[in-house]
Design a protein around this nucleic acid. Structure first.
Lengths: 115, 115
DNA sequence: CCTCCTATATAGATATTCGATATATCGGAT
DNA sequence: ATCCGATATATCGAATATCTATATAGGAGG
């Protein structure tokens, strides 16, 4: 299932990319935004997010820059590149394809004989 | 993400359980049915399916029985137990919750500021 | 002073799925 | 007669994603 492997398991990458489409964000902010946006369904953990962000940076899908915060540690902001925007479009399409197929199997029960 | 871990990565279990809700099936049949039902989106492989079925059997979600085929090797049919039916209901609910959250993040873009 | 909240980071563990390989039988092609 | 492909089940090792736990560091509040 190439679709599954890189997408549904890797849905976090899609979600992060999607958030960055709107504006630049730093890691901690992403966790909170995602939780709020998904109505507390997605609990993206630090141990998942930061390695993921480093991976996206390596692949050239995002760029990073640091900026001082009013207080506390400096924040590392991430920005979506053109390549990242392209990858996002693909991942979104894959997600829709996956969700559609899922729906087809789940609804296509005993009653209507498929198609 | 407990939701994600046991559901979206484990969507194969949900799909298999769903197929068995309708009628008893043997492994090879599931692979073909799933491919057809999902319009060629899901390509469940033998190396994924058989260990999965053994796992479901161990957990008591399905029972198995062998039956001779007209030709070739005897087929191992799987039957959904009450417990399996219960697990299916839960997994379906989880899937809907996940898909809904996903949709909320993907649509809730720059335009409408969320809610 | 200690703890909690913010903020980033890494290492180890766990789970899911895939690819490769093995077995066995049948039908068709060479 | 033999080889190959399709049916049918099974197992092992590898790759990948995510989590838990832990570490660092500054600021705020008790």
């Amino acid at each position: 299932m190439d679709l599954d492997r890189s997408l549904v398991s890797g849905s976090m990458a899609l979600l992060v990319l999607k958030l960055l489409e709107e504006r630049d964000l730093y890691g901690y902010e992403m966790m909170e935004t995602l939780r709020a946006r998904s109505d507390d369904t997605f609990h993206l953990k630090a141990g998942t997010l930061y390695p993921l962000l480093h991976g996206l940076e390596e692949k050239g899908l995002v760029t990073a820059y640091e900026r001082e915060a009013a207080a506390g540690k400096p924040r590392r902001y991430y920005h979506l590149t053109d390549q990242g925007r392209c990858a996002l479009t693909e991942k979104e399409a894959s997600w829709h394809r996956y969700a559609r197929a899922m729906h087809r199997v789940l609804k296509g029960g005993a009653c209507c004989a498929g198609a």
